[in-house]
């Protein structure tokens, strides 16, 4: 029986081994319905294996999972019926036309013939491929193939969509079309499991991010990930050498850490929004001329690299 899931995907201690190799180790996560989940990790981290398990393509070794309320391992056909998947390569039939490709998959997803045709037309128009519907896919550009593969994943209106590198190899304009499309899908309440190496893209699109390397290293919102990793803070640009004002800043009891480089003071604070005014007052009181005050910004890329490198180092020490 299918329940009414609040989480589109839930896994509990999900594990997959290949002989002695642990590809996915004890993965426990919950992805709320209607969110975009970014699954980040280096090549060979086990991301594809995880997606294959969750899309009921391969079995789990241990643990359990539900996808769209269906129990993995027991309701695999229902899971496959409910999800859409964009694999790493578009995997289209080059000798068939765009129309024939999509119609074939629409029928494989059990759409009645009239609805299949209308869905194919809808997505071909939506992704600007309608005029090329009769052309062989073999002659399509990479971007067109990718858009067609995305259309294929959506023909049956799945509630959970797995997208593996949806913008890889696309020109900036096509990548923007795909990203906007993903936002539109989220606005429609669909859940998207996004595997990507494009970290700015993950930052832009994802509500929740999991950093993964055989096991889940961190699971949080992009904002919390950044704050949790490097702490919140403020950068103050002053006139002249900033080291002169370090003592005044460090004298404030709530300042966790302060460093100076050229004309910039970098100050770690627990609650920057509340504490910034007092920092500014202290600096002005000490005689500093302030040019600007900005929150410290760390990219998701910095967070990701820090996490993966820390994990790599701890693994090396463990060995």
């Amino acid at each position: 029986m299918r329940g009414a899931p609040t989480n589109a995907i839930e896994t509990s201690h999900l594990t997959r081994t290949f002989g002695g190799l642990i590809a996915v180790d004890d993965l426990t996560l919950a992805i709320p319905q209607g969110s975009v989940f970014g699954f980040l990790g280096p090549n060979g981290a086990g991301k594809t294996t995880t997606v294959r398990m969750l899309s009921a393509l391969i079995a789990t070794s241990r643990g359990s999972a539900t996808v769209a309320g269906y129990v993995l391992g027991k309701q695999n056909e229902a899971i496959r019926q409910t999800i859409g998947i964009l694999t790493e390569t578009p995997g289209l039939y080059d000798r068939l036309s765009a129309w024939q490709n999509l119609l074939f998959f629409a029928e494989m997803y059990d759409l009645p013939s009239k609805r299949a045709a209308s869905q194919v037309e809808h997505y071909l128009r939506l992704l600007d491929l309608w005029d090329r519907r009769g052309d062989r896919v073999g002659g399509f550009s990479k971007g067109m193939k990718q858009k067609l593969a995305i259309a294929r994943a959506l023909l049956h209106e799945p509630q959970v969509i797995f997208l593996d590198e949806p913008t890889a190899g696309l020109d900036p304009e096509s990548a923007r079309v795909v990203r906007d499309f993903i936002k539109q899908l989220r606005a429609e309440g669909r859940t998207i499991f996004l595997t990507t190496h494009n970290l700015p893209e993950a930052d832009e699109l994802c509500d929740l991010i999991g950093v993964f390397r055989s096991k889940l290293l961190r699971l949080d919102t992009p904002g919390n990930l950044r704050a949790g990793m490097f702490g919140a803070g403020t950068q103050v640009r002053v006139v002249g050498d900033a080291t002169r004002w370090l003592a005044a800043v460090r004298a404030l009891p709530f300042v966790q850490q302060a460093t100076a480089a050229e004309s910039i003071l970098t100050i770690s604070l627990a609650h920057p929004d509340d504490q910034n005014p007092e920092v500014v007052r202290a600096l002005v009181g000490a005689g500093a001329d302030i040019r600007s005050v900005e929150p410290t910004s760390h990219s998701l890329e910095e967070v990701y690299l820090e996490l993966v490198e820390n994990e790599h180092a701890s693994t090396a020490i463990g060995q």
């Binding site: 393509l57 496959r80 039939y93 080059d94 494989m108």
Partner: peptide, 14 residues
């Protein structure tokens, strides 16, 4: 070799 099997296997085909 054309890597079309995985999308096909992902459908609810028995």
């Amino acid at each position: 070799s054309n890597r079309t099997l995985e999308p096909l296997l992902a459908t609810p085909v028995r």
